[in-house]
Nucleic acid binder design. Structure first.
Lengths: 172, 172
DNA sequence: TCGAATTATTTTAAGCCTAAAATGTTTTTC
DNA sequence: GAAAAACATTTTAGGCTTAAAATAATTCGA
């Protein structure tokens, strides 16, 4: 058998590119590791929120979005920001209004739109939780140097852009 | 007012460390970016699995675990590997046995233990899906150079270790 | 201006997920 | 060897999540 050159793309006898099952094992491993990290940290945060404040992670996340928007947000805004389905937000908001953390009103100018805001109670509780939450995150990432953090930020930004591009290709 | 040295840790008049609300905004941003990346990619994979194969992501993930274990796994193994609750696995397995993708039997040596395996059908279907899945991942991470991938792998490994350490501190 | 398309939200049906309690089994300990 | 501890799994109750269909309101276009 003649020696074969070690090129990435295989060529057939007529020098035309041939479909080769390329090796994407590295990317796959990277994806699994990314997922593991997120799941690990998310689970930890979820548990601490429940133990310390008896609140669920989705509730906390929703309140976090609203804390950054003093003038309120529409359900669609929230849905896009949180990257969850519309129906999901509907239910989440329902329960948070029920518990007195959120205020919800129909927009004056567009009767399709619901604007939601944190109530005083909601804001106070969120701030209390957020302060502690921040220390948890700092601790979870505690072994990373500032340089590590910067580098990760950069690479994840690149990853996000790459994934968005890929997603847009499929669903333009 | 005398000039103050710009040290990170504030000292009070008696030179004892004082609790200062430290700034962990960078770590927080990092966490949000990590979460965004994962959610983005996960959503994309979920959608493609549904469209192309009419299968859910958790089902796919479970089958992926079993594909790596020809001799089968116990429910506990699966639960640990997937980092989901026991009860969750019970239900997932139930549905996959129902659909003929999994085989489940009680261990000969320990009647508490359930051993599950992919059936022929399950393995065949999984392999078909996995091949395509791999190309999606490659595409989603397509703009990363091999060096980026290596660097991310390294930093995420460090992140995982850090988070595990932090989690262990809380729940030893 | 009227009908069509678009947009915002809700509803529906099904499945996923968790924490905690319950059940049954095995191992440990005295 | 019996009680206690540990273990594997299931059940329970409730909440989260999605995709798709339905409802309602607005905007656009001829």
């Amino acid at each position: 058998m003649p020696p074969v050159s070690d090129c990435t793309e295989m060529l057939d006898s007529e020098t035309k590119a041939v479909e080769t099952p390329e090796d994407h094992a590295e990317e796959l491993r990277l994806w699994l590791r990314l997922l593991t990290c997120t799941t690990l940290i998310e689970g930890e945060v979820r548990g601490r929120l429940r133990q310390r404040f008896d609140v669920t992670l989705p509730r906390f996340d929703l309140m976090a979005q609203l804390d950054k928007a003093p003038d309120g947000m529409t359900l669609s805004d929230v849905s896009k920001r949180m990257m969850v389905s519309n129906g999901n937000v509907t239910g989440l908001v329902e329960r948070l209004v029920e518990s007195g953390h959120l205020d919800r009103r129909t927009s004056e100018t567009d009767r399709r739109v619901q604007v939601i805001r944190l109530t005083k109670l909601g804001r106070a509780e969120f701030r209390r939780m957020a302060a502690e939450h921040e220390t948890w995150i700092a601790d979870l990432f505690g072994d990373l140097t500032p340089k590590d953090v910067r580098e990760l930020m950069r690479l994840l930004a690149k990853t996000k852009a790459s994934a968005q591009k890929s997603a847009a290709r499929r669903r333009p």
